[in-house]
Simulated scan of single mutants.
Amino acid sequence: MLIFDADDTLWENNVVFERVIDEFLEWMTHPGLDRGGVRAVLDGIEAANAVTLGYGSKVFLHSLGECVARLRGRAATDEEAARISGWAAAFDGDRVELIPGVAETLAELARRHDLLLLTKGDTEEQQRKIAASGLVRHFRGVHIVAEKNTATYEELTRAYDLEPGSAWMIGNSPRSDILPARSAGLNAVFIPHDRTWVLEHGELDPADEKILRLPSFGALLRHF
């Protein structure tokens, strides 16, 4: 069984958030606080909100508003709130940008193996992206969860009666894809993405032989 992450593994995602963050940092930066300082405040707010509110563009926009309030020492004005709301358009639409090699590689892998899709975030938002990708036909099952931790992977292996040692989790996020999957006894394939969200970073054990590191999605065909 091959289990796939979605955002930034199958299609581009964080680059959209980073474009908005670049504009936000330009807007909020002032002589008393540089871009790095503003970003540090925003990262802290996002980390806290991920625990209580989850993930997705709505939570992200809420975090921007909270960051404005934190930095200004007051609630956002109507004008500031309208500017933040305007960034919602960046996340609308019914198209996603597949990462190179994904479509043809998944089609071939689906002929060889059972595939599952495991993604976290806002259910409606993730469903929209999955539908827009045109990839759902390749998967035996699709799972949208609030968080991807060890318990999530253990529950998935029970639901499909999998032997953890014969299953592989494939993704770009050390924190959500690789480390908890390994903790649950699964093998893992790490395909790095140079724009992975900072909150998804993590240290992987270079001596862990159950983690396969690949340079691209298409390289999966050489191993599976």
Rank of each mutant, 00 (worst) to 15 (best):
L25V: 03
H193V: 05
D94E: 13
L10V: 11
E97D: 11
G171Q: 08
I3F: 07
D177L: 06
F91M: 00
E200N: 15
G185A: 06
T52M: 02
L179F: 07
K58T: 12
L106M: 11
E18A: 06
S166A: 14
A90N: 09
L221T: 09
R70K: 11
P215I: 05
A184C: 12
G32F: 07
H138T: 03
V68H: 10
G171P: 08
R137D: 11
W87M: 10
G165V: 05
D92A: 15
W27Y: 01
P100N: 01
G37E: 02
A103D: 12
G101Y: 03
G44C: 06
R140C: 05
L33G: 05
L214R: 00
A82G: 10
G86A: 14
R39M: 12
R35W: 00
G65W: 11
L199V: 08
F4K: 06
G37I: 01
G171R: 07
P31Y: 04
S133K: 09
T29K: 12
L156M: 12
L116I: 09
K210E: 13
A146W: 08
V38E: 01
L42F: 01
P180H: 00
I211G: 10
L53R: 14
H138M: 09
G56S: 03
L118I: 10
I99M: 13
D208P: 11
G44F: 00
L220E: 05
D194E: 07
N149C: 09
E66S: 05
S176A: 14
R72N: 08
D34M: 01
R175G: 00
D92W: 10
D122G: 08
L118F: 15
R72W: 13
Y153W: 14
R182L: 04
L106D: 05
P164C: 00
H201K: 13
E18Y: 13
E97R: 15
L117K: 10
A6D: 07
L98S: 02
H223Q: 07
C67E: 01
A103N: 06
G134Y: 11
E154H: 12
D194N: 07
R72P: 01
V142A: 04
K148I: 02
S166G: 11
Y153F: 15
S173W: 08
R35T: 06
P164L: 01
F224I: 04
T157P: 11
A146L: 12
Q126T: 07
E79R: 09
I144W: 01
A146N: 15
L135S: 09
I45D: 04
D7E: 08
H201L: 12
A103K: 12
R72A: 13
T196V: 14
A48T: 11
Q126P: 14
A103E: 14
D78V: 10
E155Q: 14
A88C: 08
K58H: 11
I170F: 05
E12G: 02
E124A: 15
P174D: 13
A50F: 15
R128S: 08
E46C: 05
V59F: 03
W168F: 03
M28R: 13
D205Y: 11
L116F: 10
F24T: 11
A88F: 05
